[in-house]
């Protein structure tokens, strides 16, 4: 595990809440992506999730589906993703970077070299949304060989027995995908209890993706989870554009950072 992922674990152990923010690469165009990643880093995120757009984003809600539909028009290939990652890494050596996508996008060429290229560019982990543990044997081997660990997802339908196996394999943060199309499927006390139970079986930080759009919601999530993943509210903000979009993005992330930090040291 690399230093950036180790740092995330140390922060989680010290009850310092973690913030991950997702951006769709190429939304609305490639030139803007690196600027937006820089804004996230300077506003204090712990992890940037760079979503490589797919034409059929079945597991994303409407806002991110629209963002990906815009970004697909940029026709990004893996060499361009590597360039963005490498440039980001040069400017922000301590901010973790997760690249995420759907499996089909990794099948256009031999997958091993794609993973090696991402790792060399400074990407810390890869999240493949439609690759469950059981179907991941080939990619697991390639990921290990490339030194690019996979982010593992869990959900309200994940049993404790299954979670323990997922946790055993996890070499990177785990993400609780707690919503489907914006509908929360597990809320309140049940969510907290499940996260607490899962947390007893892993050292990896667990981020929760719960359709969060505000600082207050993010704060509520990190009462139970090690970190919060925010995605659609950023895509929605960028969709609106306008001349001050970068400043509004900065303010949004600063607000998220401040509210989750209020929970630091609790619990």
């Amino acid at each position: 595990m690399n230093d950036r992922l180790n740092t995330l674990e140390e922060r989680a152990s010290a009850r310092r809440p973690l913030l991950m923010v997702a951006l769709v690469a190429g939304d609305p165009h490639l030139d803007a992506t690196l600027d937006y990643m820089g804004i996230l880093a300077e506003a204090g995120v712990d992890v940037v999730e760079l979503i490589v757009p797919f034409s059929e984003p079945a597991y994303h809600g409407a806002v991110l589906q629209r963002a990906m539909a815009r970004a697909v028009n940029e026709h990004l290939d893996w060499a361009q993703i590597e360039e963005i990652a490498a440039e980001f890494r040069r400017s922000y050596p301590s901010v973790a970077l997760v690249v995420s996508t759907y499996l089909n996008r990794l099948m256009v060429a031999p997958t091993g070299p794609i993973l090696e290229g991402l790792q060399s560019a400074g990407v810390d982990a890869l999240w493949i949304y439609d690759l469950p543990m059981e179907e991941a044997a080939e990619v697991d081997a390639l990921s290990e060989s490339a030194g690019l660990p996979l982010v593992r997802a869990v959900s309200a339908t994940t049993s404790l027995e299954r979670f323990r196996e997922i946790a055993r394999r996890a070499q990177a943060p785990i993400i609780w995908t707690g919503h489907s199309g914006g509908e929360l499927t597990l809320t309140g006390q049940a969510f907290e209890e499940r996260l607490r139970t899962f947390g007893e079986y892993t050292r990896r930080p667990i981020f929760a993706s719960m359709g969060v759009t505000t600082g207050a919601e993010a704060q509520a999530v990190v009462q139970a989870a090690d970190g919060v993943l925010v995605g659609s509210s950023v895509a929605w903000l960028l969709e609106g554009r306008g001349p001050d979009v970068k400043e509004r993005l900065r303010r949004h992330v600063v607000e998220l950072r401040a509210r989750v930090d209020e929970v630091a040291g609790q619990g």
């Binding site: 079945a58 597991y59 469950p132 997802a153 869990v154 959900s155 339908t157 994940t158 299954r162 995908t177």
Partner: peptide, 12 residues
């Protein structure tokens, strides 16, 4: 073939 789905759908 296979069952290439998000984790939330795996167990159902």
């Amino acid at each position: 073939g296979g069952r290439f789905v998000a984790e939330a759908l795996w167990s159902p």
